[in-house]
């Protein structure tokens, strides 16, 4: 039994560390990418993968009690609001006329 619990702890550490790496990758992407529309995608790596892995790791680490419920609540909330706010940013930018960058640095709109 205790070996099983220690195994769970190791899984929790792996989850937390890989979640931290995903958050760094998301931040790095939002620094490296060339234009606004690609930066949106880099930020959504943090919003989905990093949040899931970090909260899952913390939940496994704490065991099953009220803390797990709070973590679940934070996770559900971030899952609903993360996409909503990034859609809001994207929509505001689209309305204000920022168009995606093409490879030859031409301005372009929608193409079918």
């Amino acid at each position: 039994m205790s070996i099983f619990l220690e195994f769970l702890q190791v899984i929790a550490w792996i989850c937390i560390l890989s979640g931290g790496i995903l958050v760094i990758i998301g931040a790095l992407g939002s620094l490296r990418f060339p234009d606004f529309w690609s930066r949106l995608h880099a930020a959504s790596v943090t919003d989905s993968g990093g949040v899931i892995l970090l909260l899952l790791g913390m939940g496994i680490h704490s065991g099953f009690n009220l803390i797990t419920f709070k973590l679940l609540l934070i996770g559900v909330f971030l899952f609903i609001t993360g996409p909503t706010s990034s859609h809001a940013v994207a929509n505001a930018a689209w309305v204000s006329g920022i168009k995606p960058l093409r490879k030859k640095h031409k301005k372009s709109g929608i193409d079918k």
């Binding site: 529309w37 949106l40 995608h41 959504s44 919003d47 899952f79 996409p83 909503t84 689209w94």
Partner: peptide, 23 residues
């Protein structure tokens, strides 16, 4: 729309009639 935005690599930008505009 939220699922499209949640998966990295695609983002819903606008709702027009019967289709989404996805980047």
């Amino acid at each position: 729309a939220n699922t499209i935005t949640l998966t990295p690599g695609t983002i819903t930008v606008e709702v027009e009639g019967d289709h989404f505009l996805v980047h």
